[in-house]
């Protein structure tokens, strides 16, 4: 891989992390929140593949990336399931509706 591609990939990882963290702060909708978390996970998966490439073990990097995607899909599913329950009980997906616990 030539240095320019490497740099491009690195930029992609960093910007995905940035978008993800920014989204996590501003999103008020539960479904969007799950999507934002998935963006973060994709950044991490790309980062692992890149790390594999940089240490000349691209096979290892790719298998780590795929494992991460599989593992974090489960988190997304659980998140969505909770969002469904919230919609059913409260009739809204707004996170601000969930603020009974304080102190």
């Amino acid at each position: 891989m030539n240095p320019t591609t490497l740099k491009l990939c690195l930029m992609a990882v960093l910007s995905l992390v940035g978008i993800g963290l920014y989204g996590l702060m501003i999103c008020r909708n539960l479904i969007k929140m799950v999507i934002v978390l998935q963006i973060l996970v994709k950044a991490a998966a790309l980062g692992l593949i890149l790390a594999g490439q940089m240490s000349s073990q691209i096979n290892l990097g790719q298998s780590l990336g795929i494992t991460v995607i599989v593992a974090d899909t489960i988190v997304a599913v659980v998140g969505m399931a909770l969002a469904v329950q919230v919609q059913r009980r409260l009739g809204t997906l707004d996170v601000d509706a969930l603020s009974s616990l304080r102190g």
């Binding site: 993800g20 991460v68 909770l82």
Partner: peptide, 22 residues
């Protein structure tokens, strides 16, 4: 939900750390 979002964000940071170490 609070637990899931915070914990999932934390685990992504761990993954980025693993990438750096690798």
């Amino acid at each position: 939900i609070k637990y899931l979002v915070q914990s999932a964000a934390g685990s992504v940071l761990v993954l980025l750390g693993i990438g750096l170490v690798l």
